[in-house]
Protein backbone atom coordinates (compact mmCIF):
# COMPACT_ATOMS: atom_id res chain seq x y z
CA UNK A 1 0.00 0.00 0.00
CA UNK A 2 1.37 3.34 -1.02
CA UNK A 3 1.46 5.89 1.76
CA UNK A 4 -0.12 9.23 1.15
CA UNK A 5 2.54 11.88 1.37
CA UNK A 6 2.69 13.86 4.56
CA UNK A 7 2.44 17.12 2.68
CA UNK A 8 -0.92 16.02 1.25
CA UNK A 9 -2.28 14.73 4.54
CA UNK A 10 -5.84 16.04 4.78
CA UNK A 11 -6.33 19.04 7.03
CA UNK A 12 -9.35 19.56 9.23
CA UNK A 13 -11.57 20.97 6.51
CA UNK A 14 -10.72 18.11 4.19
CA UNK A 15 -11.45 15.59 6.92
CA UNK A 16 -14.86 17.18 7.50
CA UNK A 17 -15.59 16.91 3.79
CA UNK A 18 -14.55 13.28 3.93
CA UNK A 19 -16.98 12.56 6.75
CA UNK A 20 -19.77 14.16 4.73
CA UNK A 21 -18.95 12.09 1.64
CA UNK A 22 -18.67 8.86 3.63
CA UNK A 23 -21.99 9.57 5.29
CA UNK A 24 -23.68 10.32 1.96
CA UNK A 25 -22.54 7.09 0.34
CA UNK A 26 -23.43 4.97 3.35
CA UNK A 27 -26.84 6.57 3.65
CA UNK A 28 -27.61 6.31 -0.05
CA UNK A 29 -26.37 2.77 -0.65
CA UNK A 30 -26.18 0.86 2.61
CA UNK A 31 -29.33 2.07 4.35
CA UNK A 32 -31.86 0.77 1.81
CA UNK A 33 -30.06 -2.55 1.52
CA UNK A 34 -30.10 -2.90 5.29
CA UNK A 35 -33.82 -2.12 5.21
CA UNK A 36 -34.34 -4.87 2.63
CA UNK A 37 -32.28 -7.32 4.67
CA UNK A 38 -34.10 -6.48 7.88
CA UNK A 39 -37.51 -6.78 6.27
CA UNK A 40 -36.63 -10.07 4.60
CA UNK A 41 -35.26 -11.61 7.77
CA UNK A 42 -37.86 -10.11 10.10
CA UNK A 43 -39.61 -13.40 10.57
CA UNK A 44 -36.51 -15.52 10.41
CA UNK A 45 -34.86 -17.61 7.77
CA UNK A 46 -37.59 -20.25 7.87
CA UNK A 47 -40.25 -17.76 6.93
CA UNK A 48 -37.95 -16.46 4.21
CA UNK A 49 -37.54 -19.96 2.76
CA UNK A 50 -41.30 -20.44 3.04
CA UNK A 51 -41.89 -17.31 0.98
CA UNK A 52 -39.66 -18.77 -1.72
CA UNK A 53 -41.74 -21.94 -1.85
CA UNK A 54 -44.39 -20.48 -4.12
CA UNK A 55 -44.29 -22.36 -7.44
CA UNK A 56 -44.56 -19.14 -9.45
CA UNK A 57 -41.60 -17.63 -7.59
CA UNK A 58 -39.55 -20.79 -8.00
CA UNK A 59 -40.21 -21.02 -11.72
CA UNK A 60 -39.38 -17.31 -12.15
CA UNK A 61 -36.07 -17.74 -10.32
CA UNK A 62 -35.26 -20.83 -12.35
CA UNK A 63 -36.08 -19.04 -15.62
CA UNK A 64 -33.88 -16.10 -14.67
CA UNK A 65 -31.01 -18.35 -13.65
CA UNK A 66 -30.93 -20.46 -16.78
CA UNK A 67 -31.49 -17.67 -19.30
CA UNK A 68 -28.79 -15.58 -17.62
CA UNK A 69 -26.34 -18.45 -17.53
CA UNK A 70 -27.00 -19.23 -21.18
CA UNK A 71 -26.49 -15.57 -22.06
CA UNK A 72 -23.23 -15.43 -20.09
CA UNK A 73 -21.94 -18.52 -21.88
CA UNK A 74 -22.91 -17.15 -25.32
CA UNK A 75 -21.20 -13.89 -24.38
CA UNK A 76 -18.02 -15.64 -23.33
CA UNK A 77 -17.91 -17.55 -26.60
CA UNK A 78 -19.17 -15.04 -29.15
CA UNK A 79 -17.92 -12.01 -27.23
CA UNK A 80 -14.40 -13.44 -27.34
CA UNK A 81 -14.82 -14.26 -31.04
CA UNK A 82 -16.02 -10.69 -31.65
CA UNK A 83 -13.10 -9.18 -29.78
CA UNK A 84 -10.78 -11.47 -31.70
CA UNK A 85 -12.25 -10.46 -35.04
CA UNK A 86 -12.24 -6.76 -34.16
CA UNK A 87 -8.60 -6.83 -33.08
CA UNK A 88 -7.13 -9.14 -35.70
CA UNK A 89 -9.32 -9.24 -38.80
CA UNK A 90 -10.39 -6.71 -41.35
CA UNK A 91 -14.17 -6.61 -41.26
CA UNK A 92 -16.56 -4.58 -43.41
CA UNK A 93 -17.71 -1.52 -41.49
CA UNK A 94 -15.37 -2.26 -38.61
CA UNK A 95 -15.07 1.30 -37.32
CA UNK A 96 -18.84 1.67 -37.16
CA UNK A 97 -19.24 -1.72 -35.50
CA UNK A 98 -16.56 -0.93 -32.94
CA UNK A 99 -18.39 2.27 -32.04
CA UNK A 100 -21.76 0.50 -31.86
CA UNK A 101 -20.50 -2.11 -29.39
CA UNK A 102 -20.87 0.35 -26.50
CA UNK A 103 -24.38 1.34 -27.48
CA UNK A 104 -26.15 -1.13 -25.15
CA UNK A 105 -24.48 0.68 -22.24
CA UNK A 106 -25.95 3.98 -23.34
CA UNK A 107 -29.38 3.02 -24.62
CA UNK A 108 -32.17 2.78 -22.02
CA UNK A 109 -33.00 -0.86 -21.40
CA UNK A 110 -36.68 -0.21 -21.92
CA UNK A 111 -35.91 1.05 -25.41
CA UNK A 112 -33.91 -2.13 -25.98
CA UNK A 113 -36.97 -4.16 -25.07
CA UNK A 114 -39.12 -2.12 -27.39
CA UNK A 115 -36.69 -2.55 -30.26
CA UNK A 116 -36.64 -6.31 -29.90
CA UNK A 117 -40.40 -6.44 -29.56
CA UNK A 118 -40.69 -4.45 -32.77
CA UNK A 119 -38.13 -6.55 -34.60
CA UNK A 120 -39.50 -9.97 -33.78
CA UNK A 121 -43.08 -9.07 -32.91
CA UNK A 122 -46.01 -10.75 -34.64
CA UNK A 123 -46.36 -7.80 -37.03
CA UNK A 124 -42.78 -7.72 -38.31
CA UNK A 125 -41.35 -9.64 -41.24
CA UNK A 126 -38.78 -11.40 -39.06
CA UNK A 127 -41.41 -12.32 -36.50
CA UNK A 128 -43.72 -13.77 -39.17
CA UNK A 129 -40.85 -15.72 -40.68
CA UNK A 130 -39.95 -17.36 -37.40
CA UNK A 131 -43.60 -17.93 -36.60
CA UNK A 132 -44.03 -19.81 -39.89
CA UNK A 133 -41.38 -22.22 -38.62
CA UNK A 134 -43.16 -22.57 -35.32
CA UNK A 135 -40.68 -20.41 -33.39
CA UNK A 136 -42.10 -17.68 -31.24
CA UNK A 137 -39.62 -15.07 -30.06
CA UNK A 138 -41.54 -12.19 -28.52
CA UNK A 139 -43.60 -13.18 -25.47
CA UNK A 140 -41.47 -16.33 -25.34
CA UNK A 141 -38.14 -17.40 -23.89
CA UNK A 142 -36.01 -16.66 -26.99
CA UNK A 143 -37.10 -13.02 -26.65
CA UNK A 144 -35.74 -12.94 -23.11
CA UNK A 145 -32.41 -14.37 -24.24
CA UNK A 146 -32.16 -11.88 -27.12
CA UNK A 147 -32.94 -8.95 -24.85
CA UNK A 148 -30.32 -10.08 -22.34
CA UNK A 149 -27.77 -10.61 -25.11
CA UNK A 150 -28.26 -7.05 -26.33
CA UNK A 151 -27.95 -5.58 -22.86
CA UNK A 152 -24.79 -7.53 -21.94
CA UNK A 153 -23.14 -7.40 -25.36
CA UNK A 154 -20.24 -5.04 -24.51
CA UNK A 155 -19.11 -6.78 -21.31
CA UNK A 156 -16.91 -9.57 -22.66
CA UNK A 157 -15.91 -7.80 -25.88
CA UNK A 158 -14.63 -4.70 -24.08
CA UNK A 159 -12.78 -6.77 -21.46
CA UNK A 160 -11.03 -9.10 -23.91
CA UNK A 161 -10.14 -6.52 -26.58
CA UNK A 162 -7.36 -4.73 -24.65
CA UNK A 163 -5.86 -8.04 -23.49
CA UNK A 164 -5.69 -9.32 -27.07
CA UNK A 165 -4.11 -6.07 -28.21
CA UNK A 166 -1.40 -6.35 -25.60
CA UNK A 167 -0.34 -9.89 -26.43
CA UNK A 168 3.15 -9.88 -27.81
CA UNK A 169 3.18 -10.66 -31.52
CA UNK A 170 6.59 -12.32 -31.18
CA UNK A 171 5.20 -14.93 -28.79
CA UNK A 172 2.71 -16.04 -31.42
CA UNK A 173 5.36 -16.04 -34.13
CA UNK A 174 7.75 -18.02 -31.95
CA UNK A 175 5.08 -20.66 -31.41
CA UNK A 176 4.35 -20.81 -35.14
CA UNK A 177 8.00 -21.12 -36.11
CA UNK A 178 8.27 -23.97 -33.65
CA UNK A 179 5.61 -25.67 -35.76
CA UNK A 180 2.61 -25.29 -33.48
CA UNK A 181 -0.78 -25.67 -35.15
CA UNK A 182 -3.21 -22.75 -35.09
CA UNK A 183 -5.29 -24.39 -32.39
CA UNK A 184 -2.21 -25.13 -30.36
CA UNK A 185 -1.04 -21.52 -30.71
CA UNK A 186 -4.42 -20.31 -29.52
CA UNK A 187 -4.36 -22.70 -26.58
CA UNK A 188 -0.84 -21.97 -25.42
CA UNK A 189 -0.37 -18.30 -26.33
CA UNK A 190 -3.80 -16.69 -26.26
CA UNK A 191 -6.02 -18.70 -23.98
CA UNK A 192 -3.96 -18.30 -20.78
CA UNK A 193 -3.80 -14.52 -21.31
CA UNK A 194 -7.45 -13.92 -22.05
CA UNK A 195 -9.00 -16.57 -19.80
CA UNK A 196 -9.19 -14.41 -16.64
CA UNK A 197 -10.70 -11.49 -18.57
CA UNK A 198 -13.22 -13.77 -20.30
CA UNK A 199 -14.18 -15.33 -17.00
CA UNK A 200 -14.56 -12.12 -15.00
CA UNK A 201 -16.48 -10.32 -17.73
CA UNK A 202 -18.63 -13.41 -18.24
CA UNK A 203 -19.45 -13.32 -14.54
CA UNK A 204 -20.25 -9.62 -14.77
CA UNK A 205 -22.60 -10.22 -17.68
CA UNK A 206 -24.27 -13.00 -15.68
CA UNK A 207 -24.78 -10.65 -12.75
CA UNK A 208 -26.19 -7.98 -15.02
CA UNK A 209 -28.54 -10.42 -16.75
CA UNK A 210 -29.88 -11.73 -13.42
CA UNK A 211 -31.17 -8.28 -12.50
CA UNK A 212 -32.41 -7.09 -15.90
CA UNK A 213 -35.89 -5.66 -15.84
CA UNK A 214 -36.52 -2.95 -18.42
CA UNK A 215 -35.49 -4.89 -21.50
CA UNK A 216 -37.46 -7.97 -20.45
CA UNK A 217 -40.68 -6.52 -19.16
CA UNK A 218 -41.85 -5.61 -22.66
CA UNK A 219 -40.44 -8.54 -24.60
CA UNK A 220 -41.29 -11.42 -22.31
CA UNK A 221 -45.02 -11.02 -21.90
CA UNK A 222 -44.59 -12.07 -18.28
CA UNK A 223 -46.66 -15.23 -18.37
CA UNK A 224 -46.25 -17.11 -15.06
CA UNK A 225 -44.38 -20.41 -15.40
CA UNK A 226 -43.33 -19.54 -18.95
CA UNK A 227 -41.89 -16.09 -19.39
CA UNK A 228 -42.08 -14.47 -15.98
CA UNK A 229 -38.53 -13.72 -14.80
CA UNK A 230 -37.57 -13.08 -11.19
CA UNK A 231 -37.12 -9.28 -11.41
CA UNK A 232 -40.47 -8.93 -13.18
CA UNK A 233 -42.02 -11.22 -10.57
CA UNK A 234 -40.60 -8.99 -7.83
CA UNK A 235 -42.10 -5.96 -9.54
CA UNK A 236 -45.48 -7.68 -9.76
CA UNK A 237 -45.40 -8.56 -6.09
CA UNK A 238 -44.57 -4.95 -5.19
CA UNK A 239 -47.45 -3.72 -7.33
CA UNK A 240 -49.88 -6.15 -5.78
CA UNK A 241 -48.78 -5.13 -2.29
CA UNK A 242 -47.08 -8.34 -1.17
CA UNK A 243 -43.58 -7.12 -0.41
CA UNK A 244 -42.76 -10.20 1.68
CA UNK A 245 -42.32 -12.58 -1.27
CA UNK A 246 -40.74 -9.73 -3.24
CA UNK A 247 -38.18 -9.25 -0.49
CA UNK A 248 -37.49 -12.98 -0.27
CA UNK A 249 -36.81 -13.35 -3.99
CA UNK A 250 -34.82 -10.11 -4.00
CA UNK A 251 -32.61 -11.24 -1.15
CA UNK A 252 -31.86 -14.51 -2.91
CA UNK A 253 -30.97 -12.81 -6.19
CA UNK A 254 -29.09 -10.06 -4.41
CA UNK A 255 -26.95 -12.60 -2.58
CA UNK A 256 -26.12 -14.30 -5.87
CA UNK A 257 -25.42 -10.96 -7.57
CA UNK A 258 -23.13 -9.77 -4.78
CA UNK A 259 -21.30 -13.09 -4.79
CA UNK A 260 -20.75 -12.78 -8.54
CA UNK A 261 -19.70 -9.15 -8.16
CA UNK A 262 -17.13 -10.13 -5.52
CA UNK A 263 -15.85 -13.04 -7.64
CA UNK A 264 -15.42 -10.83 -10.73
CA UNK A 265 -13.74 -8.19 -8.59
CA UNK A 266 -11.32 -10.75 -7.16
CA UNK A 267 -10.37 -12.02 -10.63
CA UNK A 268 -9.92 -8.48 -11.95
CA UNK A 269 -7.67 -7.62 -9.02
CA UNK A 270 -5.55 -10.65 -9.74
CA UNK A 271 -5.22 -9.60 -13.37
CA UNK A 272 -4.27 -6.11 -12.20
CA UNK A 273 -1.68 -7.51 -9.79
CA UNK A 274 -0.12 -9.56 -12.55
CA UNK A 275 0.15 -6.60 -14.88
CA UNK A 276 1.77 -4.40 -12.27
Amino acid sequence: MKHAAYALTPNRGERMLRHAVVLYIWALVALPLVALLRFGLREGLVALAEALRSPVALSAIWLTLWTSTLVALINMLLGTATAWALVRYRLPGKTLLAALIDLPLAIPTLVTGLMIAVLYGPLSAAGRMFEAHGIQIVFAQPGIVLALLFVTLPFVIRAVEPVLMEIDKSEEEAAKILGASAIRVFRTVFLPSIAPAVLSSGIRSLGRALGEFGAIVIVAGNIPFRTLTAPVYVFGEIESGTPRTAAAVSLLLLTIALGLHAAAHAIERRIGARDA
Binding site: V22, I25, W26, V29, A30, P32, L33, A35, L36, R38, F39, G207, L210, G211, E212, F213, G214, P231, V232, V234, F235, I238, P243, A246, A247, S250, L253, L254, A257, L258, L260, H261, H265
Partner: peptide, 22 residues
Protein backbone atom coordinates in the same frame (compact mmCIF):
# COMPACT_ATOMS: atom_id res chain seq x y z
CA UNK B 1 -16.58 2.68 1.08
CA UNK B 2 -15.00 1.75 -2.22
CA UNK B 3 -16.97 -1.51 -2.39
CA UNK B 4 -20.16 0.28 -1.42
CA UNK B 5 -19.73 2.87 -4.15
CA UNK B 6 -19.50 0.07 -6.70
CA UNK B 7 -22.55 -1.77 -5.43
CA UNK B 8 -25.29 -0.02 -7.46
CA UNK B 9 -23.77 -1.60 -10.57
CA UNK B 10 -24.51 -5.06 -9.23
CA UNK B 11 -28.07 -4.58 -8.03
CA UNK B 12 -31.19 -4.94 -10.13
CA UNK B 13 -33.10 -1.65 -10.43
CA UNK B 14 -36.32 -3.32 -9.26
CA UNK B 15 -34.62 -4.43 -6.09
CA UNK B 16 -33.22 -0.96 -5.55
CA UNK B 17 -36.78 0.28 -5.83
CA UNK B 18 -38.00 -2.34 -3.37
CA UNK B 19 -35.24 -1.53 -0.87
CA UNK B 20 -36.10 2.16 -0.87
CA UNK B 21 -39.77 1.28 -0.62
CA UNK B 22 -39.02 -0.69 2.52
Amino acid sequence: LSALADLPLAISPVMIGLSFLL
